[in-house]
């Protein structure tokens, strides 16, 4: 089979498609280096808004909140999601496998507004004081499903006889899991973590419902500032956020591609 070559028309379609997807983001990054205070007028290259960003106390605080929420919620989601995936991918019969799979995956398709609202109701009913912990728990709830899907897919791709071979060679069930299954699933677990991390970093809706005083995340801060008018500073903050998310997604996709060589 010959490799795919791009013709002139293909290239044009590709260019239009990419421009549609990435044009707006490119513009945003470009304007974050704008020397002018007017957002829509180019006034030459400058990094002054990045400097201003560093001096902007509320934005800096919001960034820290977002990072903390993303790290902790991704860790929680990775733990719970991986455990769920291990159970659901177990060979043989598992009672209620289909039901549990459906229940686990439901948050992926539920509208975020509903998830946010129901979590808010739950926290209020339980008398939790809203703050950074409620946002973290809410994000972990939403992102667990994504981790589970990624890890389960990888586990199902691991040959079943491998764990049996480890047992046969003297490994206890726990040792067989730790020395064979876990290393083979590690890239997917890492990818799941980064996915959960970026989802949390991106989220505006669920965070808005579950945040309290002192737990304003970066997307919330950006959104509320934009309502008062876009400033180049926000462009700079958004560019940084985009860079971080982009890097995480890149690492995740590299990690899941660099799976162990298949036999």
């Amino acid at each position: 089979m010959r490799g795919a070559r791009f013709g002139g028309l293909d290239l044009a379609i590709l260019a239009v498609g990419l421009a549609f997807l990435y044009g707006p983001m490119l513009l945003l990054v470009l304007y974050s280096f704008n020397a002018s205070r007017l957002v829509t007028v180019w006034g030459g290259f400058s990094t002054r808004w990045y400097a201003a960003l560093l001096a902007n106390e509320p934005l800096r605080e919001a960034s820290l909140v977002s990072l903390r929420v993303a790290l902790v919620s991704a860790a929680l989601a990775t733990l719970v999601g991986t455990l769920a995936a291990i159970l659901l991918a177990r060979p043989g019969r598992v009672a209620g496998r289909r039901t549990f799979t459906a229940l686990l995956l439901a948050p992926m398709v539920l509208p975020e507004v509903i998830v946010g609202l129901s979590l808010l109701l739950l926290f209020v009913a339980l008398g939790f004081e809203r703050g950074i912990w409620t946002v973290t728990l809410a994000h972990a709830t939403v992102t667990t499903a994504f981790v589970a899907v990624v890890v389960q897919a990888r586990l199902l791709g691991i040959e079943r006889d491998l764990e049996a071979a480890a047992r046969d060679l003297g490994a206890s069930p726990a040792t067989a899991f730790l020395t064979v299954t876990l290393p083979l699933a590690a890239p997917a677990i890492g990818a799941g973590f980064l996915l959960a991390f970026t989802l949390s970093l991106d989220d505006l809706v669920v965070a808005s419902f579950t945040a309290g005083p002192g737990s304003t995340t970066l997307p919330m801060r950006i959104y509320s500032s934009v309502r008062l008018g876009v400033t180049p500073e926000i462009n700079a903050a958004s560019s940084l956020l985009m860079g971080l998310v982009g890097a995480a997604v890149l690492v995740a996709s590299l990690a899941s591609r660099r799976r162990a060589p298949t036999t």
Binding site: E159, A164, A165, R167, D168, L169, L184, A260, P261, T263
Partner: peptide, 16 residues
């Protein structure tokens, strides 16, 4: 793991 018996699998089941 506690049998003095070992098996060679049809797929070989080598740890990749």
């Amino acid at each position: 793991e506690r049998r003095p018996v070992n098996i060679m699998f049809q797929s070989y089941a080598l740890f990749p």
